[in-house]
Amino acid sequence: MESADPRRPESRFDTFRDRLRQLYHGRSPTGLRFRLAVTIVDLLIIAFFIATPVLRDASTFLWIDYSVAVIVALEIAARFLASSNMLRLLRQPAVILDLFILVTLLAPQWLENFGFLRILRLWSLSQKGVIWAQLRRTPYRDWENVARALINILTFLFVVTGFVFTFFFREAGGLAGYVDALYFTVATVTTTGFGDITLPGTAGKLTSIIVMIVGISLFVKLAQALVRPNKVTFPCPECALQRHELDAVYCKACGHKLKIPDDSD
């Protein structure tokens, strides 16, 4: 049996996959610009998801919806081709979420009650390292924890607003119904409780309780990120503790000597 010739030129498909790997995982300026461009497109898609309840009755809604579906499908396919282990990538929560979002985009009329879950893509976007890698190169790198906590709160607010609009304010419809849902969500999360807009029935009361409990927890995390001393994210090689003081030499959990890179320049 003849062995494969290592000097055999790569096929066009292999060359294309190598190119995608460089764009998604490389550190070249071209790869960085590509990932930033993908991030901007993601933000525009998320803006469409947030505005979906208001745009649903527009004549062009389905055209926009299916166009976004094509973009999301191409981006997911590109990520799989750029991955060296597709099965491991498929098990990642962010990828599973993106696949679910794609299904809701392809069947918007049958799965419209689950459309509010599309906004979870904002959380998925926050898991991409390119955003935080760029933030760490700026004078605002110490605000990473605050930014992460803020994204979590915004994601929660818009997901809950979409849920409340879908199941409680759908009859009002349009912008007015969505604003009522957002107003209720913000008033409940902040425990302001004006009482002028409430959710009816037992389901409404249970929804309000869950929103208050989870919302308060997220606000506490944001407050902690604002007031606690700045720390650097660097996993300890011995015990994997993630957060350390900026000038830490030894891990406070296990005493292992750390070699935290100094990027103050």
Rank of each mutant, 00 (worst) to 15 (best):
E171M: 15
L175V: 10
P200F: 10
I197L: 15
A176C: 01
E171I: 15
G193H: 10
T191S: 10
P200H: 04
V186C: 03
T190L: 15
T190Q: 02
G177A: 12
V186N: 00
R170A: 15
T202F: 10
R170F: 09
A187R: 01
L175M: 00
A172T: 15
L175S: 00
T192Y: 10
V189G: 03
T191Y: 08
A176Y: 11
G173I: 11
V179W: 01
T190A: 14
Y183R: 06
T190R: 02
A172P: 01
P200E: 11
A172V: 15
T198G: 03
G173V: 14
T198V: 14
I197W: 05
T192D: 02
L199W: 00
P200G: 09
I197Q: 02
D196C: 06
G173L: 15
G174R: 11
V179R: 05
T190E: 02
I197N: 02
Y183M: 07
D180R: 06
G195N: 04
V179F: 01
G201P: 01
L175D: 00
L182G: 00
A203D: 09
D196Y: 06
A181R: 05
F184I: 08
F194L: 10
A203N: 04
G177L: 13
A203F: 00
P200S: 13
G177K: 11
A203R: 03
V186A: 08
G195Y: 07
G201V: 07
L182M: 11
P200V: 13
G177F: 12
T198C: 04
A181W: 09
F194K: 04
G201A: 07
G174E: 14
G201N: 03
F194H: 05
G193V: 04
E171H: 14
D196P: 01
A172F: 13
G201Y: 06
L199D: 03
F184G: 02
T202Y: 07
D196W: 09
Y183V: 08
T185L: 10
F184Y: 14
R170K: 14
G201L: 09
L175Y: 05
V189T: 10
T191V: 15
D180E: 09
A203T: 04
T192I: 14
V186I: 15
G195S: 08
T188E: 12
G177Q: 13
V179G: 01
I197K: 05
T190D: 02
T190Y: 02
V179H: 00
